[in-house]
Design a protein around this nucleic acid. Structure first.
Length: 709
DNA sequence: TTTGTATGTATTTTT
DNA sequence: TACATACAAA
């Protein structure tokens, strides 16, 4: 892409290099191009690449941007996600907060294990207090940079602060941080140690943030702290593409930019260079159904192109069959590669039928996200050994590996060991060594003694290897010496698959070493935890399958947007959420605007969910797209418009559990009173007026989990 | 303490 | 469905 190809607004943004600038960039308006050219121009004007930081939202976007920048200049600036920026700061400076530099990053699963332990330790019997629910509360609090407040109106509100404290303590003792800490701790660090902040402010003179509409309060604060001094703050975003409010993203961050920075300059990019006018206008019509929205006029001069294809399948197998069939044909018809097409879905679970069909026809594909490679049990098991070498205080990894293979340590003995280690000056592994000495404070049986000896020996042997040999050798030896492959054999059904994954892990280690000759074990582990999407798969021509969330920032010649059905897309869980439908609609908008030329919207009449076939109604989003932009693939399509109206009418035969005026309890919203009971096609709904904030919410009986008091 | 079976229960989206 | 936890038995 050449400079001359920039339009005047883009050029304006690129040239602006002093003070705060907000680029409101509609879908496909070339925002990445603007960011890249801006970076290059800064460098050409004499700014050192080391003084520039560009923050993106996903690893995929960061990688792509890094590649595009480094193809133009020799020394690339730091381009990473908010979370990896956080890690970078913490690796250098976390010791101010008392943590060890060797800290590990706990992923969601690790964190949940930690929380389960906390709940157990506090002897909380209430079974509504699940690790998952607590995690959500803690996560929300951290992203708002708050401590969880005591809230006596619910049992959760009462215990959450207690659990939070213990959890944070346990993390600290394990030299571990969770994902939220990667944002939470740096802001805390900067607040408490202004001198440290000062160092980073001088080091990073230019901060660029992509997808600014998706920043949460912690990210917003971190960015604000960093730019407070030099004020060179270049942010790019599109309020219509805000799809992460569920994880604390605050759309006000972008809407308030002018208020936050009185001298802010705003540039609007409204010409779309990606999609045909048909696709773009259809998407525009859809998004106009959102009430909470600033109007904008995004246009394209790429011509009308083809109309949007709509297909109505009988069930998800037929949907998959149709799509795979069509995309094979389209490959020839449009002379495109597999990787120019994408299958989007709302939930990761929907990938299954597509995978089955692709496997059946031998079409290569990659699934992005979902249950990623590094979240597989066998991979996490092997990595846990490695993590322990790196950080011998890592409790979660210890508990994961101590019984691989079975060494006879049950819940009771492990609790004793952890307790002992906690009160001793040693780390976990050293404490275990103490236990092998005569006169140890904990009595172990023969099997346990032998097991612990083997375990300690294994770890020290691996430690030695880690000093002497390359990483791939270490990974290989870990698998060999732990006898992990034998452990896998106990479950013959899965062992072949798992073995293959283990082999792949070794291959990845070799690969990683090739690309990071100077890399350390710690960096390797960190990248695996943070970088869930695989990076180097692009070389092959494969069809990509992913959730719509993962599609943000990408573009494809052909897009298949699947599962366009009520309760799936929009997802049923959004129905009770404040502005939930609007966020779903933005998500749909994001999905549609990924398409350059060809867009398919597909749905099914029946879908297998929750162990049974359920009949599905078409998504409201399909109705919101004017039919003049669409064409139907099947001839039966006409039927659904009629049957749709009819099918809305019948109400469910469900009986109301509560009566009008009854006082009920909701886990999140607290105590409320039933104002209205309706029987809709989706089942019984209640309008409940909640005490806490006086709001009235419409809740679906099936999903809101109300209880009487 | 481990292992097997039964039962329940939840299923969005991601760093 | 399919996964995780609970419980019982060895």
């Amino acid at each position: 892409m050449n400079k001359a190809l920039l339009n005047s607004e883009q050029q304006l943004a690129v040239d602006y290099n002093q003070g705060p600038l907000l680029v409101l960039a509609g879908a496909g308006s070339g925002k990445t191009r603007v960011i890249i050219h801006h970076i290059i121009q800064l460098i050409e004007k004499g700014v050192s690449p080391k003084q520039i930081v560009a923050v993106t939202f996903t690893n995929k976007a960061a990688t792509e941007m890094r590649e595009r920048v480094s193809s133009k200049i020799d020394l690339s600036p730091l381009i990473c996600t908010f979370h990896s920026l956080g890690v970078r700061i913490l690796r250098e400076s976390i010791e101010h907060l008392g943590y060890s530099k060797n800290f590990v990053i706990y992923d969601e699963e690790d964190a949940l294990k930690m929380l389960r332990a906390c709940i157990k330790e506090l002897q909380i019997e209430d079974k509504t207090i699940t690790p998952k629910a607590v995690k959500q509360i803690i996560s929300k609090a951290k992203n708002r940079l708050e401590e969880p407040q005591e809230d006596s109106s619910s049992s959760m509100g009462q215990v959450a602060p207690q659990i939070f404290k213990l959890y944070q303590n346990k993390l600290f003792e394990a030299s571990a941080v969770d994902f939220d800490d990667l944002l939470f701790l740096p802001t805390k660090l900067f607040k408490e140690f202004p001198a440290v902040l000062d160092i980073y402010q001088s080091k990073w003179q230019h901060l660029l943030v992509d997808e600014y509409q998706d920043t949460n309060h912690a990210q917003y604060t971190l960015a604000s702290q960093l730019v407070a001094k030099h004020r060179n703050f270049f942010v790019v975003g599109d309020p219509d593409q805000s799809i992460y409010t569920w994880r604390g993203a605050n759309i006000q961050n972008i809407l308030n930019f002018e208020k936050d920075w009185s001298d802010a300059r705003i540039v609007r990019l409204e010409q779309n260079y990606r999609s045909t006018s048909t696709i773009l206008e259809a998407a525009n019509h859809l998004i106009e159904n959102n009430e909470n929205r600033y109007k904008k006029n995004l246009w394209s001069d790429l011509g009308e192109g083809e109309r949007i294809y709509k297909f109505n399948a009988f069930n998800e197998r037929e949907e998959a069959d149709f799509i795979v069939d069509t995309l094979s044909q389209n490959q020839k018809k449009y002379q495109i590669n597999l990787k120019d097409m994408v299958i989007f879905y709302r939930t990761n679970a929907q990938s299954r039928p597509f995978e089955d069909e692709l496997l059946r026809r031998n079409i290569p594909y990659t699934v992005v996200g979902g249950m990623s490679f590094y979240q597989r049990r066998e991979i996490k098991d092997v990595l846990a050994f490695l993590k322990l070498l790196n950080n011998p205080s890592d409790t979660v990894s210890f508990l994961r590996t101590i019984n691989l293979p079975k060494r006879g340590f049950g819940e009771a003995s492990l609790a004793k060991i952890l307790h002992f280690a906690n009160r001793s000056p040693h780390n976990l592994i050293e404490a275990c060594q103490e236990l092998l000495k005569p006169g140890a404070p904990i009595r172990l049986n023969q099997k346990q003694l032998q097991g612990l000896t083997d375990y300690i020996n294994l770890l020290s042997a691996l430690k030695k290897i880690s000093h002497e040999s390359p990483l791939n050798e270490l990974v290989y030896q870990t698998i060999q010496r732990s006898g992990y492959l034998n452990i896998l054999k106990s479950d013959p059904d899965s062992s072949d698959d798992r073995k293959a994954n283990i082999d792949e892990l070794v291959a990845k280690a070799i690969d990683w070493e090739d690309q990071n000759p100077e890399g350390t074990l710690s960096q390797f582990l960190e990248e695996l935890t943070l970088n869930t999407s695989q990076s180097n798969e692009d070389a092959h021509d494969r069809l990509v399958l992913m959730s719509v969330h993962n599609g943000k920032g990408l573009e494809f010649h052909s897009v298949f947007l699947t599962g366009m059905e009520e309760t799936l897309f929009p997802h049923i869980n959004s129905f009770n959420l404040h502005n939930g439908i609007e966020e779903e609609r933005r998500l749909c908008y994001v999905g549609m605007t990924r398409a350059k030329r060809i867009l398919y919207l597909t749905r099914t009449m029946s879908r297998f969910i929750w162990g049974g076939a359920r009949s599905m109604r078409p998504s409201r989003f399909l109705r919101e797209i004017p039919s003049k932009y669409c064409q139907k693939v099947d001839d039966e399509e006409e039927e659904y418009q009629d049957s749709y109206v009819e099918r809305q009418a019948p109400t469910s035969t469900e009986k109301s559990e509560f009566s009008l005026g009854e006082v009920v309890y909701h886990q999140e919203f607290g105590i409320g009173k039933v104002q209205k009971i309706k029987n809709s096609s989706l089942g019984i709904t209640y309008d409940v007026n909640f005490q806490k904030d006086g709001s009235t919410k419409t809740l679906l009986a099936k999903f809101a989990k109300l209880s009487s008091i």
